[in-house]
């Protein structure tokens, strides 16, 4: 790899990180607090590229062994450093969605938070509840905190082989590699919206359904409205 190509590899990676972090693109892969570390990394890598291009050629440096200057040879593996950037631009991998959620559907979810479960706020209309929260509320005290309450769950649509559909969210702790899915089956609403589209489902908990129970957590829908996908699709 020539010195100029080395600079190109570093610069390309820097440009990709900068482009992802200055828009919303990075939110498809990592959590939102990574924005500024990524901007800084991109800027430093681009600065490094400029320095690598401007530094004196190997011949100008005093050379001990007569061949190429030191710092010249890099392992062939370094070529792979171009791959993430190429994939970002060419395939632009989207946020994890229904495909992963359906594959991970059978996985056990982590235990509910240990803290005391607070009742839902009093409200005339439906109360917005996160999908994962709805699930652990269903599992605690036989769902006392959500029983007979109108709630609204927002998420994307995933399906299963039996023709059911689910309102679904994916949570990440660090990056998309540790994603876990939570989803609630939507009942009494036959026209399943398009897979991976975003919806707000208003309705009531189906009594007796809970994670790990006889029947997976379900909501009896009274209305389903389409929603724009949020910039950050993860929880």
């Amino acid at each position: 790899m020539t010195r100029t190509t080395q600079a190109l590899v570093v610069g390309f990676l820097g440009a990709v990180l900068l482009r992802l972090s200055l828009g919303d693109g990075y939110l498809r892969y990592v959590t939102d607090w990574m924005k500024w570390p990524l901007v800084a990394t991109g800027v430093v890598l681009l600065g490094l590229t400029v320095w690598m291009l401007l530094r004196p050629a190997p011949g100008d440096i005093e050379d001990h062994d007569g061949h190429d200057g030191h710092g010249h040879k890099v392992p062939a593996m370094t070529w792979l450093a171009l791959l993430p950037g190429v994939i970002v631009f060419v395939a632009s991998p989207p946020s994890l969605g229904a495909y992963l959620a359906e594959r991970r559907a059978g996985d056990p979810v982590a235990a509910a938070p240990d803290a005391e479960i607070l009742p839902l706020p009093a409200s005339d209309g439906p109360v917005d509840v996160e999908v994962a929260e709805f699930m652990w509320r269903a599992g605690v005290e036989d769902g006392a905190t959500i029983k007979d309450r109108d709630v609204r769950l927002t998420g994307f649509v995933s399906t299963d082989e039996n023709g059911n559909w689910y309102v679904t969210r994916i949570a990440i702790a660090c990056c998309a590699a540790d994603a876990s899915a939570s989803r609630v089956r939507v009942e009494d609403y036959d026209d399943a919206p398009e897979r991976d589209s975003w919806v707000a489902v208003t309705g009531r908990w189906v009594e007796g359904t809970a994670p790990g129970g006889k029947s997976e957590t379900a909501i009896e829908a009274s209305s389903v409205e389409p929603r724009e996908a949020p910039a950050n699709t993860y929880q």
């Binding site: 992802l20 990394t41 395939a91 989207p94 590699a177 994603a179």
Partner: peptide, 21 residues
């Protein structure tokens, strides 16, 4: 399948890049 692999692959690289630097 390719998209999911791509997302996770890019995610690991993006997450690691600031730490590596």
């Amino acid at each position: 399948l390719f998209n999911t692999w791509g997302t996770i692959f890019v995610a690991i690289v993006v997450q690691s890049a600031p730490f590596l630097l």
